[in-house]
Design a protein around this nucleic acid. Structure first.
Length: 508
RNA sequence: GGCCUCGUCGUCUAGUCAGGCCUAGGACACAAGGUUUUCAACCUUGUAACAGGGGUUCAAAUCCCCUCGAGGCCGCCA
């Protein structure tokens, strides 16, 4: 594999909520890029907007990354108690680096690349409205640009002095050459009146100090990129390479966001999506591997983590935005579930089952007898579930003491009540004669199929299966019978017979 | 409204940079058939797209121009 240890990338979320597909996909691409080149992946928390910080979201970010296995390689050396639990490398946190940003903004002031602006928010707001009304892009008018006397007021912001002529152009790794005219670039606020830096200032300084080589981020940042380039110029720094990822759209075709129904990554976790499936699905949103395609031949879309690392390249990233549609994710998750070995799947399903069916009992472990029962049940549903959480609903008949279903369900096609009762009785008589040890799917099948030669297959198996499950759809009856065990099977058949007999009208 | 970006099946995409191998390939979804007591899984088949219009060329999904459409940004948010 190619190596380039100098590659350094970062994921820089702000702790304003729980990460969703839109955010975390950026982390994934950065991570894959770093791992592909054997470079470094850095996590940096951008918490410079104190008003928008959401309690607990830092932990949610960490939990999401951990769950997906997107590990980062370095972090701040100073460890504060409250963050000790966050893993081997505590992320960099911007709120701890304020002194750094202030120092650099002084430098900008001295170099006259930035200036203090004393304009009041009210004036700016009014100006924006007027500009908009005139059909112009709202921009700062530069009133404080050349102030000679500095006002005494402490209430000011520091703005970037954007050159009035010329243009800013750069080569985006995904989009190619992109250019902006300086006159269209606003004098961006760098330091807010509360003394905190804006994203633009803090991220440029941090990217420089952290020696970030590739800034891989969402397309929503594309129009800010020239401001960042200008900042690098002002400082006299070498800018990193930029790669602006296509944005992910919701079903309404607007940027995926919490407001537009984006689901938190941790929500996917709870619903029982497997991290590998989610990663596989996400990576295909905006990227597809370069492979030798053979016409008409089916193409593989399932990739292991290692394959992704090996194949990932920014060259193969799509330019156009992708609509997020969960259908394929569901299929993929089902596929990954089917590939799991039974032991793994059982362990993953256990918490869901435990929660619903054994809330009071002690934890079910592989040493407990009931674990064997659960394992048998899980085996029967493996190819049917798309998410782990579905295991609960699908298996309730295994845990129910008494089934509750309508007698008409026992009827296969045009069977009469007598036939149903008769056929179930035939099955009952034969099965009752089986020893506990013989109560295996093969033996049960052998016996029932023999009966079915006379009764008809559907006429026997349908009522039999309904008797055991109370459901219209389920796994095969022989496996179910084995899993339930003789005692329960006999009891349920008897109950079904009773139900059919007691029924006066429905079965006529 | 201004600036920027993007436009291939319903959705994710291959093909576009280096025009012909494209009667445009694959995946999901959908439909039909097979298997089957039901559901699922699996197998086979099918429906379905180069936004539109002009160029350039022997030849255009691919290059150029225009139109249309979609998205992003336009905060002392990130």
């Amino acid at each position: 594999m190619l190596q380039n240890p100098s590659v350094r990338v970062r994921y820089a979320p702000s702790p304003t909520g729980e990460p969703h597909i839109g955010n975390i996909r950026t982390a994934l691409f950065n991570w894959l890029f770093a791992r592909h080149w054997r470079g470094r992946f850095i996590l940096r928390i951008e918490d410079t907007d104190r008003a928008r910080i959401a309690f607990g979201s830092l932990e949610k970010i960490i939990e999401s990354l951990n769950w997906l296995g997107l590990d980062w390689d370095e972090g701040a050396t100073k460890v504060k108690n409250k963050l000790k639990s966050l893993g081997p490398h505590r992320p960099y946190v911007q709120s701890e680096r304020l002194e750094i940003y202030r120092r650099y903004v002084e430098e900008l002031l001295e170099k006259e690349k930035a200036y203090r602006c004393f304009c009041l928010p009210e004036r700016l707001e009014k100006m924006r409205k007027e500009q908009l009304a005139q059909g112009r892009a709202p921009m700062y008018d530069g009133r404080c640009r050349e102030l000679i006397k500095i006002k005494k007021s402490k209430n000011f912001v520091i703005r970037l002095k954007v050159p009035q002529k010329g243009k800013v152009e750069f080569k985006d790794l995904i989009r190619g050459k992109v250019e902006f005219e300086s006159k269209n670039i606003d004098d961006q606020v760098l330091l807010k009146s509360d003394g905190w830096p804006t994203y633009h200032l803090a991220s440029v300084i941090d990217d420089h100090l952290m020696k970030i080589t590739h800034v891989i981020r969402g397309e929503e940042w594309l129009s800010s990129a020239p401001k960042h380039l200008l900042l690098y110029q002002a400082f006299g720094w070498q800018p990193p390479q930029f790669a602006h990822l296509p944005i992910i759209l919701g079903l309404d075709r607007s940027k995926l966001s919490k407001r537009h129904g984006a689901i938190s990554i941790l929500e996917y976790k709870e619903q029982g999506y497997l991290p590998e499936a989610l990663i596989n699905f996400m990576v295909l949103l905006g990227w597809s591997p370069k492979i030798d395609r053979i016409k008409g031949k089916k193409e593989k879309e399932i990739f292991s983590r290692e394959e992704l690392i090996k194949k990932f390249s920014l060259d193969d990233v799509q330019k156009s935005p992708a609509v997020f549609n969960a259908e394929k994710l569901n299929w993929m998750n089902g596929y990954y579930i089917r590939q799991l070995n039974l032991e793994e799947l059982t362990k993953k399903c256990l918490p869901y089952l435990q929660d619903k069916y054994f809330p009071d009992k002690i934890l079910i472990r592989s040493s407990v007898p009931i674990y064997k029962y659960v394992k048998k049940i899980v085996a029967l549903e493996q190819e049917r579930i798309k998410k782990l959480s579905e295991i609960v609903e699908l298996t309730n008949f295994f845990f129910a003491e008494k089934l509750n279903y309508d007698s008409s369900l026992l009827k296969w096609k045009k069977m009469t009540k007598e036939e149903i009762v008769g056929n179930l009785n035939l099955a009952l008589k034969k099965l009752i004669g089986l020893k506990e040890k013989e109560f295996k799917r093969r033996k049960i099948k052998e016996i029932l199929m023999k009966i079915a030669e006379k009764t008809g297959t559907g006429e026997l198996l349908w009522p039999f299966r309904v008797a055991l499950t109370g459901r219209e759809t389920s796994p095969g009856p022989f496996e179910i019978a084995e899993a339930l065990g003789k005692e329960r099977v006999i009891k349920r058949i008897k109950e079904a017979i009773k139900l059919a007999e007691s029924d006066l009208d429905k079965l006529m």
